[in-house]
């Protein structure tokens, strides 16, 4: 496994929607490369036959009855909004497509 380089960090920062200046990249890339190399050892120990554990306590089928609960009032829903208009959250221009 190859270590992380500066361009990888720039790409990942874009994917994670964090703007990074050249200074940020300089500062974080080196640290990240060291960490990535250190954690890469996870791949060394467990073989094919070891199952993955995604949840520490095994449980299944925890479901909720299909019963309506009260929603927030519109003003409470919008109370933390940086910007709102007509009962909706307002955001700057969306470029690109509907996902």
């Amino acid at each position: 496994m190859s270590s992380l380089d500066r361009s990888d960090v720039a790409r990942l920062a874009g994917l994670a929607r964090i703007d990074m200046s050249d200074a940020d990249l300089d500062r974080l890339s080196g640290q990240l490369a060291v960490i990535v190399d250190a954690v890469a050892k996870v791949a060394e120990v467990a073989g094919e036959d070891v199952p993955a554990t995604s949840h520490p306590i095994p449980m299944a089928n925890i479901h909720r009855e299909d019963v309506v609960r009260p929603s927030l009032a519109q003003d409470a829903a919008l109370s933390g909004a940086p910007d709102a208009e007509d009962g909706r959250f307002r955001v700057p221009q969306i470029l690109g497509e509907e996902a």
Partner: peptide
């Protein structure tokens, strides 16, 4: 009657942001 992962009503046409939690 309700949404996939919460108890908000699953109904079409309500006032905006009134069926949210």
């Amino acid at each position: 009657k309700t949404k996939m992962f919460c108890g908000c009503a699953n109904e079409f046409g309500a006032e905006p942001n009134t069926q949210v939690c």
